[in-house]
């Protein structure tokens, strides 16, 4: 009994191999190798081509701790990630609920298309178009003044709110899609049962829908929080002089001063911090899932 079971298992793994191989080969090539290279870079003392041969050092990591500038920037980026994630949740969850539970057929398809539509245009173009909308004398300003009876000056461009608006716009579809998937999986009968047993709409939402939709909300939050913390393009274009964040500082190390070791080290510190945050959130995730 035992030997035959063993062979079957080995065979199972063998036959699964061709299915797994492409994905793992790709992951090795596209993620594992570049990341290892960056780990190596982050430990080098210098990569300038005319410098004496580089030695291994942890000095780049020490730089982060020796200068409060980097911690301040990291904190700003984390706060930004939190704000954007919350805004996406507040805006995205109701939309996903309507899509999953209220709209049916054609209407649902049409609204769904509208949610995904922004993904079809280049993200840089989307960010740039915000700069036309948000500035004084821009599209929004002109439109508001044409409608409102009193004069308002609407000038958000090159400010922190502009960065938040641009990022929420970029990442909102992730939240809508993940929430939609979990909400759709909730059996309508559960909600009907709650209602027929006397629960108000609000308590049905609070005690049935929200807990069951929690995995989707958390997955969406993670999908948004991680890239936003490292974002550099949106802050640079929309933030003006308020747009200096951890991501832009990493970018500067690579593009402006050619200091790859420090840039790589800062990237890994960011990665570590994000991992710690996700690990800290893991118990909550497990309880709700």
């Amino acid at each position: 009994m035992t030997p035959s079971f063993k062979t079957r298992r080995r065979n199972g793994l063998l036959s699964a191999l061709p299915l797994l191989l492409p994905a793992y080969a790709w992951l090795t090539l596209a993620i594992f190798l570049p990341l290892s290279a960056m780990v190596y870079f982050s430990l080098l003392s210098d990569i300038a081509p005319n410098a004496p041969s580089p030695s291994l050092t942890i000095e780049n990591y020490a730089t982060f701790f020796s200068d409060p500038l980097y911690a301040t920037l990291l904190w700003r980026s984390l706060v930004l990630g939190l704000i954007v994630t919350l805004a996406c949740l507040v805006i995205g969850f109701p939309a996903a609920y309507v899509l999953a539970k209220i709209l049916k057929g054609r209407a649902r398809e049409a609204i769904f298309l509208l949610v995904i539509l922004p993904f079809w245009s280049n993200s840089l173009v989307r960010v740039f178009s915000w700069s036309m909308v948000l500035r004084e004398g821009g599209i929004l300003d002109t439109a508001l003044n044409a409608v409102l009876p009193f004069e308002v000056t609407f000038d958000l461009i090159y400010s922190y709110p502009a960065v938040v608006i641009g990022l929420v716009h970029s990442y909102l579809p992730y939240m809508v899609l993940t929430c939609y998937l979990t909400l759709q999986a909730i059996d309508d009968a559960l909600i009907e049962a709650a209602r027929s047993l006397g629960a108000s709409r609000l308590s049905a939402l609070r005690r049935i829908v929200l807990p069951l939709a929690m995995p989707g909300m958390l997955a969406g939050s993670a999908l948004i929080f991680i890239p936003v913390v490292g974002s550099f393009m949106e802050p640079r274009i929309l933030g003006g002089r308020n747009g200096t964040l951890f991501g832009t500082v990493i970018e500067d190390q690579f593009t402006a001063v050619y200091n790859w070791p420090l840039g790589a080290a800062l990237s890994f510190i960011l990665l570590a911090v994000v991992l710690v945050i996700l690990l800290a959130a893991a118990p909550v995730l497990r309880r709700t899932a």
């Binding site: 920037l73 002089r241 200096t244 402006a256 001063v257």
Partner: peptide
């Protein structure tokens, strides 16, 4: 020099963050 460039960048980043 590369060292100057790096120290300029650091100073500049600090000034930009300090101004917020």
């Amino acid at each position: 020099t590369d060292e100057q460039r790096e120290s300029y960048l650091k100073t500049w980043q600090k000034l930009k963050v300090g101004a917020n």
